[in-house]
């Protein structure tokens, strides 16, 4: 089709989906098929649609999403490994009327940052914590994460994770749901269009709860790592359903009545 034909066709059409303005034009550095950038995009869609860009401050982690601030076009701070929720606490305490979210992977949030995670939730810090769980350290080359499944092969569990040497996968989302400081705790994913729609709803609700000063909202996103898992993106999403969901089932863990 020539460009004139396309333009003529599009004239009869209306745009129903476009990259949000709250994302920069920068090309994502993530591997093909990675869920991180979907999560970035959905957060930014909510920020755009809610019209809260001028009030939103994000905190980026260390890990694959260390450059999250190159894509999410809002004011952001880059935290030390594991400390995103402490940094977010500092921001929120001095700017209580802003929307503050932290963004972390499994190593960051559930290993090195466990203390900060637990205590931020336990204080009921009025922030949104986004936790992307793909059961592996992607950035450093595919090492075992606290959430790595039993039997799962990584570069530091080459024969598969065993209880004897590495203990059990950490279900930190269920842990924080037990804390009275959390108001809304949910586990979502981005492997299908519907899952993405559900995540968007969860993020929208979380910002609404933050506005109402309800306490900590915590969203785990069970995601993939095609490179680390050594699969194609399509295979990785199928593997995620088959292997991750039995231990990390999607759905609300703690939701207001």
């Amino acid at each position: 089709m020539g460009q004139d034909v396309v333009d003529a066709a599009l004239e009869q059409m209306e745009c129903v989906y476009a990259r949000p303005d709250t994302l920069t034009d920068t090309r994502f550095h993530y591997c093909p098929g990675c869920g991180h950038s979907v999560v970035h995009r959905v957060i930014m869609e909510v920020v755009q649609e809610a019209g809260i860009r001028e009030q939103t401050i994000g905190v980026a982690p260390v890990g694959c999403s260390v450059f999250a601030y190159n894509y999410m076009d809002v004011d952001m701070q880059e935290a030390a490994h594991g400390r995103a929720s402490a940094v977010a606490t500092g921001i929120k305490r001095v700017l209580p009327d802003r929307f503050v979210f932290s963004y972390q992977g499994d190593g960051d949030l559930a290993a090195i940052g466990t203390a900060e995670t637990i205590h931020t939730c336990n204080r009921g810090e009025n922030i949104l914590m986004v936790f992307v769980n793909n059961a592996i350290y992607g950035m450093t080359g595919g090492q075992m994460a606290p959430t790595t499944l039993l039997g799962m092969k990584t570069s530091t569990s080459p024969a598969g994770r065993t209880v004897e040497t590495a203990g059990f996968p950490l279900k930190i989302t269920e842990m924080v749901a037990m804390l009275p400081g959390t108001y809304y705790v949910t586990r979502q994913s981005v492997h299908t269009p519907n899952a993405v729609r559900q995540l968007k709803k969860a993020i929208t609700k979380s910002f609404q709860y933050q506005k109402e000063r309800k306490g900590t909202c915590f969203i785990e996103v069970v995601s993939n790592c095609p490179s680390g898992w050594k699969m194609t993106p399509v295979q990785s999403n199928a593997w995620l359903v088959e292997n991750m969901f039995p231990l990390y089932p999607p759905g609300d863990i703690k939701a207001p009545k």
Binding site: C15, A18, G35, R41
Partner: peptide, 18 residues
């Protein structure tokens, strides 16, 4: 919009008949 929803690189714009 299903394709755009799952697109990790946000490269898809979707149009629908008015």
């Amino acid at each position: 919009t299903n394709c755009a929803l799952v697109c990790p690189d946000a490269v898809i714009t979707v149009y629908r008949e008015k």
